[in-house]
Nucleic acid binder design. Structure first.
Lengths: 202, 202
DNA sequence: ACCTGAACACCGTTCAAGT
DNA sequence: ACCTGAACACCGTTCAAGT
């Protein structure tokens, strides 16, 4: 396991993120990254052991964007700031963002964000034994929401298709007037408010 | 857009699911599926327009496994049954399962499951206007939890790494005794109980 | 210390042709 | 109606070599 160079790692991650943002994750090939950096594909292997490690580097890059600059005073404000920052990062990097759900955030940046959440939950009065579980509950929802929104699972098209097929879906038929949501800011805010009610009086 | 044959679609999806389960999503190539079915790669294109549509078919297959045979009497029982079934499907098909978060469930099977959830939420007394939002809240969490668990985001390794780096993470240090969770059945049950508290007195 | 070239074993998909 | 063969434009990665 030979030592890796670090000098041009940031430059390479910049190029990779740009390609993913512009042309999607499927277009993110070692060859494409190399071309953008102005180098032969094989040169990349001096900086990342393989494509998987390059993707890990990309996840690390996203994590640094999650910690808000101004955390806020109350624990509600601090949790909200991180949640909305997460959603913003998902909109900025929709192709790369889903990798967050699959790669454990063990980089120091990832731990930093989790630590902020732990502290907020402690301040909220959550018993120490419940804090890690509640952190996973909230982060799983927030990341899942951000992915669903940015990748079309929540899309209006999906809701309309459901209405059209409403024949064998009685509850859909009854809810016909309420199926076309589109203000995801409002929905996310309402969801966070509901989750706060879980946290407050544990 | 020429018409597709349907005769051997189930057989092809069986083969694809088996490959993904045995060797992972990266090994799920059209060529590998074709070989398993005993046919030339090009023969598959008579049944699915491209690889993406084959993956959609796979998602449809998973959705049929989500609706529990015995739904249960109370709305709590019915919601729980679907949630636990979802988690079981994720463990059986960890590589394919994450696709559920990226592809809107507009197949009739998907609508069927969502309709069961809508009905349970109505029975719980959730106002009609809130039902679709609460369904998205719960399903996003349940799918996200199942993915995180089956794909290592919750792994013990990740928690131990965090403890080790605890130096610059004060809340982690304070919670050191509580960071090594491993009973995901219990955690999932506790999470569902918390979510029920959101649903009950909306 | 950093980079290149050639090569290997793969991909998804199109097109024209075969029974 | 169903399937095949050859071809095209790609992949990630190894190895040996070059400055």
């Amino acid at each position: 396991m030979r030592k890796l160079k670090t000098s041009r790692q940031p430059e390479i991650l910049d190029a990779a993120l740009a390609i993913a943002d512009e042309r999607g994750l499927d277009s993110l090939s070692m060859r494409a990254v190399a071309q953008r950096v102005g180098v032969t594909p094989m040169a990349l292997y001096g900086y990342f052991r393989n494509k998987d490690e390059l993707l890990d580097g990309l996840v690390g890059r996203l994590l640094t964007e999650l910690a808000p600059s101004d955390p806020g005073r109350t624990w509600e404000e601090r949790l909200s700031a991180i949640a909305w920052a997460t959603r913003r990062v998902a909109r900025e990097h929709p192709s790369v963002f889903p990798l967050l759900l699959f790669r454990a955030s063990v980089t120091s940046d990832g731990v930093g964000v989790v630590d902020l959440v732990y502290q907020a939950l402690l301040d909220a009065g959550v018993p120490e034994a419940d804090v890690p579980r509640i952190e996973r509950l909230v982060s799983t929802f927030v990341i899942g929401f951000a992915i669903s929104e940015s990748n079309g699972r929540f899309s209006a098209a999906s809701n309309e298709s459901r209405v059209r097929r409403g024949g064998d879906a009685p509850a859909h038929r009854r809810l016909a007037g309420h199926l076309t949501a589109d203000d995801w800011d409002a929905e996310f805010a309402a969801d966070l408010a509901d989750l706060m009610r879980i946290i407050r009086p544990v």
